Amino acid sequence: MFKVIMPKAGMTMEEGTIIKWLKNEGERVQEGEDILTIETNKITMEEPAPGDGILLKILYKEGDIVPVSTVIAYIGEEGELSDVSDRKTEAPAEVRQPEKFEQKIEAPRPNKIMASPAAKQLAKESGIELSLMRQAANGDVVKKKDIAEYIKSASAETQADKKGNVCENRVKIEGMRRTIYSRMSKSHAEVAASLVTIQADVTKMLSLRRDINFDTGRHVTVNDFVLKAAANTLKAYPAFNASIDGEYILMHEHINICVAVGIEGLLIVPVIKNADRLNLFDISGKVKSLVEKVKGNSLLPDDLDGGTFTVSNLGMYGINHFTPIVNLPQVAILGVCAVQRYFSEAGKSTDGMNLCLTYDHRVLNGVESAMFLCHLKEQLEKPLGLVL
């Protein structure tokens, strides 16, 4: 008999949500055949059957949030499940379900409401429960005028609702949005975030980029140049290629740059592994491949794990300055802004691009952050070194 386990798809994954069972209890499945869809804290993925057999028992329903390494189903042959009565035979797992918003309604008090005959008659004709008049009565007998005033007040509130109130749609924060919500809240609460900004003259870089794309037929982007320059700078300033682990700082040997990719209201950060060992064209190819995976929802857990530094580019939206949020447990993040054209009094034009570095002041300081940006600026202003 085979156990279907909630997989640990990545070092940071602690739980997964069962989105959909693709097979029903009693159906025969083959090894490697997808049997359910799981949403992790980063991606949505299909989980294959670990062996051939019948899906004997499903232990957790769709929507359940289950800790990793928990048995969620059994596959085997008829009769093999006799010694497994329920999920309690395995290590107990705390199953969470999406929270629901509930409105608490105070139960009516048991004491009787006293009302005059005329008040009772008007309340009956108007469909008003006398229990609603408890506050108006204030311990006294409810009179006809109390009922009339209540009707008038309720009518005024209804008219105000019709004029001023806007119907709102409540959307539950869940899935990857829930992960982003939690991580950004944690970053904002814990990180001593500081921002430094510098402008690089990218005139030569843009000219070189145009020549490369024209001569080779490739499509190297501005961001590709920035990623290569960032990889070189991280090698020169390894303190920025680090992460926080409790009371320790982990200095990473490998330079793995996360590239922020926005899609359908979400921000996904796939990782370019060993970016410092790749040339400009390798980086360009890696980025394109990862972006296609994001769009096709085909990212693997390994594509999202191991990041040591993040680059977020909003330049394509014309943004000239922003404060990126540190992607914990990393210690810094680079924001890339739009290219702006400037003209001198003599009419000569230059292209400038702002670079915004948010760093965790608990482990880094302003001087070394300024030096990091100066090195990055120099790399971009001498772009031939990024190609050779």
Rank of each mutant, 00 (worst) to 15 (best):
N223L: 04
R183K: 14
T17L: 13
L357V: 01
M45A: 10
S207H: 13
D201M: 09
V336H: 00
I5P: 06
N327F: 01
K295N: 13
Q135E: 15
I283A: 04
V166H: 11
T17R: 14
S289G: 13
V326E: 05
P50I: 10
C167G: 12
T310A: 05
E125N: 08
K288M: 12
A156P: 04
Y359P: 07
P301Q: 01
I319Y: 08
A91D: 07
L376E: 05
A200R: 08
L280P: 04
H254R: 14
N327E: 02
M251F: 13
P329Y: 08
F343A: 11
N232G: 08
S194D: 06
Q199V: 03
I283T: 06
L334W: 01
R210P: 00
D224H: 00
S349G: 05
P98R: 07
G164I: 05
K104L: 15
E381I: 03
N256T: 00
D303A: 03
V326R: 06
N165S: 15
I272E: 01
T233Y: 05
G127H: 04
S116I: 06
E174A: 15
T233A: 09
K162F: 15
E264T: 10
T308P: 09
T308R: 09
I128P: 06
M11P: 09
G366M: 03
S243Q: 03
R209I: 00
G246E: 04
R341A: 06
R218I: 02
V339A: 04
V331P: 04
V191Y: 03
K3C: 13
L81C: 08
T89A: 13
T216W: 07
M205A: 11
L355C: 02
C356H: 06
M1Q: 09
V202W: 03
K162E: 15
L278W: 01
L130M: 10
I180R: 06
L384V: 10
L278R: 11
F225L: 00
E94P: 00
K20A: 09
M353E: 01
H252N: 15
R209Q: 12
K104C: 08
D360V: 09
T203E: 00
G175A: 05
V291A: 10
V95P: 05
K382Y: 12
K204R: 10
E77F: 12
A260M: 03
Y317R: 05
G76D: 05
S349R: 08
N256A: 00
L328S: 02
A49F: 07
V326G: 01
S298L: 08
R109A: 12
V142A: 02
I268A: 01
V387I: 07
L334V: 03
E129G: 11
A160M: 10
D360Q: 06
A73G: 02
L130Q: 00
D211H: 03
L266S: 13
G306V: 06
L234W: 01
M316T: 10
H188R: 15
F101E: 15
E247D: 15
L55T: 04
W21K: 05
S182I: 11
V220Y: 00
A192Q: 08
